[in-house]
């Protein structure tokens, strides 16, 4: 263990509690010589990790500590990690891009970006959608045991949102088996008439599905190549996000194999 690194971090921990502290207070708290603390503070100040408070005598956490701390979100924050991929989908690929998580018996939109294309499908961040009718809902359900899916979806018939919505458990479970095989799900005008969507799960470092991403386009713009292309984009985005969250390649294998099959 490096003693000086350990001590410097102890200083940051102490200042991180939010109170401004003088060198001698820190020294007493950590039971270190004031001269040692002063030298550490000088270095931390030079590097922006600590700064003088308004009085000039006491110290507080500096802007660099904030910047470094904030970068933690890049590892751990689903939203921050997903956003660049969703933007690419919306801006480059002209796909309406969504990030969703399973909450209760719904999928909740963490992010919804409208495509730059001529037709935008609007959804609001924080609103929820049906699990049985949306692509990003289906992929989340596919992660669960059959009995749990049945319990979540509740009594039949399921809510009919469009003429194409699957409203019986048998019908739905048949599709879930297909989703489990391919690693992605589609919603062909099952949630909103005229809208086709594809979804895939996002996994974290433990391999657990933590969210899903989906891409939606107007059905009339799609031909068969277009469907494959949409699925490929969505699966690719989900994999890249998973990787940034620390998912091992093995955890993504199923998705990745299905992506190959779909292309």
């Amino acid at each position: 263990m490096s003693q000086s690194a350990d001590r410097a971090l102890a200083v940051l921990d102490l200042l991180g509690a939010g109170q401004e502290l003088g060198v001698r207070e820190i020294a007493r708290e950590l039971d270190l010589a004031a001269s040692i603390v002063q030298r550490m503070i000088n270095t931390l100040c030079d590097r922006g990790y600590v700064e003088r408070g308004p009085g000039g005598q006491k110290y507080r956490v500096g802007y660099r500590a904030f910047q470094v701390g904030r970068s933690y979100l890049a590892h751990g924050d689903l939203h921050a990690v997903s956003l660049p991929e969703l933007r690419t989908m919306a801006e480059r690929d002209q796909i309406n891009a969504y990030l969703g998580v399973l909450r209760g018996a719904s999928v909740v939109y963490l992010e919804a970006l409208q495509s730059k294309g001529p037709i935008a499908i609007t959804s609001t961040q924080g609103s929820s959608a049906s699990l049985h009718s949306t692509a990003f809902g289906k992929v989340l359900l596919a992660e669960l045991p059959d009995t749990e899916i049945a319990a979540i979806l509740g009594s039949e018939p399921f809510q009919r949102l469009t003429p194409k919505t699957k409203t019986t458990l048998d019908e739905f479970m048949e599709e879930i088996r297909e989703v489990r095989r391919t690693g992605y799900a589609v919603s062909d005008e099952e949630n909103i008439e005229g809208v086709f969507a594809a979804g895939a799960v996002i996994r974290d470092a433990s391999g657990q599905a933590v969210a899903s991403v989906s891409g939606a386009v107007p059905r009339h713009q799609l031909h068969s190549d277009g469907i494959d292309n949409l699925c490929h984009i969505v699966v690719g985005a989900a994999q890249r996000i998973s990787r940034r969250l620390g998912a091992a390649p093995a955890a993504m294998l199923r998705t990745s194999r299905s992506a190959l099959q779909s292309s």
């Binding site: 001698r24 020294a27 007493r28 950590l30 039971d31 270190l32 010589a33 004031a34 001269s35 002063q38």
Partner: peptide, 10 residues
């Protein structure tokens, strides 16, 4: 100031 002390006042 530059303190000579090795210990804190704890």
């Amino acid at each position: 100031v530059d303190s000579f002390m090795l210990s804190s006042t704890k």
